[in-house]
Amino acid sequence: MSNRIKQKATTRKNKFKYSLASLLELPKEVLLDLPKISLVGDLQMQLENHRGIIEFTEGKVRINTKVGVVTVTGEELVLRNITDQEIMIDGKIRVVSYK
């Protein structure tokens, strides 16, 4: 999977978009359709631009995004708010990682 992402990131179109975003200081998540993650301490995580939930248990949430799967591990995780755009996770967050 990581191979595919690399491929995508290296396409000319994406390169152009990336430099355009850098030049005009535009939000990259909008132009490149990337996920944007914001964390509030270890209590709350907000993820914008997701592509569906892969796994949801009390200790682990896996969310699909354009650049791969974002895995959140922690305790007592609750999906506080979900729309097709964003996901907000409450609980005690330990690890946020890309795979």
Binding site: G52, E55, F56, T57, L79, R80, I82, D84
Partner: peptide
């Protein structure tokens, strides 16, 4: 297939929140 259930609900623009894991 809980995840599938959630994703389908999202795709249909169903308003839901406070999803809490109870047991397997």
């Amino acid at each position: 297939r809980l995840e599938k259930f959630l994703n389908l609900a999202l795709a249909r623009n169903i308003l839901f929140w406070d999803v809490t894991f109870k047991r397997r």
